[in-house]
Design a protein around this nucleic acid. Sequence first.
RNA 1: GGGCGGUUAGCUCAGUUGGUUAGAGCGUCUGACUUACAUUCAGAAGGUCAGAGGUUCGAGUCCUCUACCGCCCACCA
Length: 893
Amino acid sequence: MAGTKEMSSRYRPGEVESRWYKVWEERGYFNADRDPSRKPYTIVIPPPNVTGILHMGHALNNTYQDILIRYHRMLGYNALWMPGTDHAGIATQNVVERKLAKQGLRRQDLGREKFLEEVWKWKEEYGSTIIRQLKRLGASCDWRRTRFTMDEDYSYAVRYVFVHLYKKGLIYQGNYIINWCPRCHTALADEEAPKKETAGKLYYVRYPIAGEEGRFITVATTRPETILGDTAVAVNPNDERYKDLVGKKAILPVLKREIPIIADDYVDPEFGTGAVKITPAHDPDDFWVGKRHHLEAPVVIDSHGRMTELAGPYAGMDRFECRKKIVEDLKKEGLLEKVEDYVHNVGHCYRCDTVIEPYLSRQWFVKMKPLAEPAIKVVKEGKIRFIPSRWTKVYLNWMENIQDWCISRQIWWGHRIPVWYCVKDGERTDCPPIVEMKDPKACPNCGNTNLVQDEDVLDTWFSSWLWPFATFYWPKDDPEVKADLDYFYPTNTLVTAPEILFFWVARMIMAGLEFMGEIPFSDVYLHGTVRDDTGRKMSKSLGNIIDPLEIIEEMGADALRFSLISITAVGQDVYLSRSKFELGRNFTNKIWNASRYILSRLDEAVKDLNWIEDLLLLEDRWILSRLHRLVEGVNRSLANYRFNEAANNIYDFFWHQFCDWYLEVTKISEGKPEEVQRNQERILAYVLEVFLRLLHPFMPFITEEIYQLLKERFALPYETVMRADYPRKAGRLDEEAEEEFEQVKSLIALLRNQRAEVGLKPADRPDLVVVTERWAVLFEQQKETVRFLARLGKIEIETFLKERPRQALAGVLPGVETYLILEGLIDVDQELRRIEEQIRQSRDAIEKKERLLSNENFLKRAPAQVVEGEKRKLEDLKDTLKRLEALRNGLKG
RNA sequence: GGGCGGUUAGCUCAGUUGGUUAGAGCGUCUGACUUACAUUCAGAAGGUCAGAGGUUCGAGUCCUCUACCGCCCACCA
């Protein structure tokens, strides 16, 4: 009563959700502290970028995590969801650079220190946006523990790891080709240099063979300016055409340098001429060929995209100008065989669209093979499992072919590489680089105090891969820290998108094993990608995003969460449109109204949920059994990460069993003693209460709101549904009640169907005669239910037909005939035709069943249970046919 | 070029180890303001489970091949 009066028929999620989130957070319900008396359950959040705003992918990802956390919290685990954000080096730096650009400034104008101050300022101001948005979603993280990958302690861990790996010989410096934007003058990650289909030309160029006048080897290239940096021509070792040329020299056009002709499997004999020019300094593939064959790598294009001194006569020219010029020169020399139009993929700077220049430079690497081996082992041994399991193969395949990891980035925002060089007179000395935990004061080799730190910062993933333990202040030498780690690590489940399986997941496994000596998590749940309803990935640039916050505003976080989970099958991509969220919105509305109704129905005298076994009616036994079945199923589904299955079962139970049937049946008061009615009220409240706990991980807000309203009426044992026990022990399953109530339901369904067919109005209440031996007792008991739900007048149950009612619509169920008395509405001929049709169908079915049951192999090999079932079905079919035939004869006669 | 996913009702998709007459949501059609809910209720129509072959007493489900769609990886100049 208190509360029920204010309950309007429209649920208002906005107010409810912000109110409860605040309460939960204030009361510390999200917090998890070490508690040896309870088992921990830990999830680390895949840290969103500080620049991030919540998109649908986050919404899906974090809903899964929140369901897992809330579920386990209710199961009694000490559940910790560790939150935080990632500094996201390049992305964040770009955001701040863009902001500066509006004031007409470049980062170089500010200088490193000032620029970093700007980034930090930006981070303080906007970095918590996504955290606030996660709260709107209902995320039950322990926010006290929120970490950032650039926190001081975290940076300590990063440095520790670098030093550790360096000392172990797993970090080294080497030359590498990176994506370089000559306009922005910065290195770009592969994903920041998207390949675009570009119309270009394929130039066929003749390289004369040294010492064999008039003989050529023709190569094809899209970038003739790189000829100047060629140090070899390569052919496939099995290519008969060129076999005799391997080992000989070709003369590089223009520069007239002699370069070797080499054989390498990399060359595809089918493409172009089957001969490839090798430019190790300006093509990533050629770079590796060059490595294998110990070729020189002259740099002919500089960081501004201009030709270097090594380009000889072209020095100082722009790379594209040079291309034109060199093509002309080749033509003049008669070395240009032909030019073809050619469409190929070229990397472009995602910021200014400049064509990327592959650029050779010195970078830091991590040797991956030694780290990968144990990480392969734990997956093969099943210590870490992927859900869905198909990702196991993808993971192993990548790990077994792993390449060394380039960890240096030429940007400013990030963890500065902890390497110092000994410098004298502005030049690096031959002293080895200094790599220490403490900033060095002097070179340990020569005592020189003029030390210069490496300019570069570390790849963002070099800090992210430590997330599962660095967030717990590892490797701080502190008993508290150690105890915390010992308790919460390894974590349980990692929930993420497959896009970062290699970037992040695989590396966390390696880091966990290397630094903790233990796997970082045991389960990896990989969910699908969120797409729009035409199948395109949702992205800002495509303009096809559906903003989760808008959906939350409009329909509530519960509706958003439930809709997402319900329509996303395990590991499948999900195609979204705004209308799909109506599913969840309508469900909240249904829950709200059913609850409102139940609360209003409860009699003053009803003070507890303890229903009395002896007073149970069929429908009560039925709904209780269905509830217990649901509890069992939901736990099974959740244990197997089948979130959508759990959600859909809960939905179906509540809407189509509990509301459509049970709630309706309990409205009948005729023939129900007072105490039985009171008992049903208790069951209504009981089912609702269990249902709320069952649903809570999916829809935390509305369940809490209603739970508290219920609490005003009943002495519920829990302060909050958040900390209530999850229903898990299935109560008794009452198969008899389920079967019998299904009989009643099908009788009602048949009658409703017939009513609709003849177009009866709701107010029309025809009488009914039911003839049945099998269900006579049951139907006699359930007369009121049938009468009420099928909107009938008088019902007579007979065990045999005394006299066929003349004006009646007949129906047949196994073991049952029904006669709906409809004076003046029956067309005998039409009736006859309808029954004839049913007889025909019935005979077909019987024939099919008899064929099956006369098959000896079936009888011999199928399980007895199946055979029994089929036999019973045949009996029912025969019974139905018999009744139909009797009906027909009756009508004819 | 490899690997993976998908193809089931008009649309979007479920369908756990092979076992009744293959389900849901939306949409469509018919009817209803039946005092919790029109974000609702009752009812209906709609499927040779992409195609072919195989295994089996029995296949949407397992195997092989084909077609189309999509994704990921890869060094085609």
